[in-house]
């Protein structure tokens, strides 16, 4: 009981002291579990519970109850104002903190926002694949920005790419919109000059050469042959390839024509046991070299940009062992830019 009395006395005294000093109050109403008592500046110090009750009785006997109520209201207002000030302080601190945090998102000003956005888009939009754990890794920033140390002035605006589905993949990832692509899924060397598989500027269907004639190019890259490596004889392949290059030279006499080596496939793809293997690819690449020697075209072997130490396309470079994924297309394209 003594301890309780002391703590009540101390707590009430402290609260009243705060109110009195900070809010300059004349009287403060305090509450405890023994009932209501009043403390004023002139009131003697409360020594025990009985004194508190006695004080209350004396106070109740005073005639001006209205004044007591006013004081009570003022006390309540003071408590509310204290709480409001605390909230205000909290809001200010919170606001400053939140503003400091949000600036992190805007702080780094990129010197070249377009290229940064491009790299960012590459990273965001690389879709995970379902059949390879290695392919579940998103393209790293380093890979996506593989052009950083190379010829950045070459926008391929004078370049034409002709090819099959691998070139279709290259077109989809190529970051240079001015480069022109005339490519189709399953394009063969024997029908390259005759197939009406290209839409001309007038909306009509036309041949490859019709489409080539609509532009003016300085560099023409051919990537064909993978769909033909099952042929037993390379001589027919050589003949068709030679005809294609001659037709292109006639259509674009100022252009340098690059006949690309057929890129390798993965070791896993080779194990499937069909005609698509690196042995056949090497055989047809020799044929392409021969065509280049006879026509004056440039033989361009980009394999070193994408192949592993054993000459295979790395497994992580493709979903089917043949077609290059975005980061390997970047390497392929960069090799072309750096070597032409």
């Amino acid at each position: 009981m003594m301890n309780l009395s002391c703590s009540l006395k101390t707590g009430a005294g402290f609260f009243c002291f705060i109110c009195e000093k900070i809010l300059a109050m004349d009287k403060v109403l305090c509450y405890n579990n023994l009932g209501v008592f009043c403390y004023t500046n002139n009131m003697p110090e409360i020594s025990n519970d009985k004194a508190a009750v006695r004080s209350m009785d004396n106070y109740n006997n005073e005639p001006n109850i209205q004044q007591i109520r006013k004081k009570r209201v003022r006390t309540q207002q003071s408590i509310v104002s204290l709480f409001s000030i605390a909230c205000l302080l909290f809001s200010c601190v919170w606001g400053v903190h939140a503003a400091g945090s949000s600036t992190k998102f805007f702080a780094p000003s990129e010197p070249d926002s377009s290229s940064a956005a491009e790299a960012d888009t590459k990273n965001k939009n690389v879709k995970k694949t379902s059949n390879s754990s290695q392919q579940d890794e998103p393209v790293s920033e380093e890979q996506a920005d593989s052009t950083a140390e190379h010829d950045e002035n070459d926008d391929l605006s004078d370049a034409l790419f002709i090819g099959d589905s691998r070139t279709v993949g290259l077109q989809n990832t190529c970051p240079y919109p001015k480069a022109v692509f005339l490519c189709n899924i399953g394009m063969h060397i024997d029908t390259a000059l005759t197939s009406l598989d290209f839409t001309l500027s007038n909306g009509n269907a036309g041949t490859l050469i019709d489409a080539v004639s609509e532009g003016n190019y300085k560099r023409i890259f051919i990537n064909l042959g993978l769909n033909d490596i099952g042929w037993p004889d390379t001589q027919i392949f050589i003949d068709y390839y030679t005809d294609l290059i001659k037709a292109l030279q006639e259509s674009q006499p100022d252009a340098e024509i690059y006949a690309e080596a057929i890129l390798p496939v993965t070791a896993a793809r080779e194990l499937e046991g069909d005609v698509i293997n690196n042995t056949n690819i090497a055989r047809f690449n020799e044929a392409i070299e021969e065509v280049c020697r006879s026509t004056g075209a440039v033989y361009l072997d980009c394999s070193e940009a994408i192949a592993d130490a054993n000459g295979y396309l790395p497994e992580e470079a493709s979903t089917d062992g043949i077609h290059l994924l975005a980061d390997y297309c970047d390497k392929w394209l960069q090799y072309i830019i750096d070597n032409t």
Partner: peptide, 24 residues
């Protein structure tokens, strides 16, 4: 369509300036 459907291939978004050239 890109996120909710599972694809075998790795799809990449074409930049706006390439859409006309690729799709015709």
């Amino acid at each position: 369509l890109f996120n909710d459907i599972e694809y075998k291939d790795q799809l990449v978004e074409l930049s706006e300036d390439k859409i006309e050239g690729v799709t015709g």
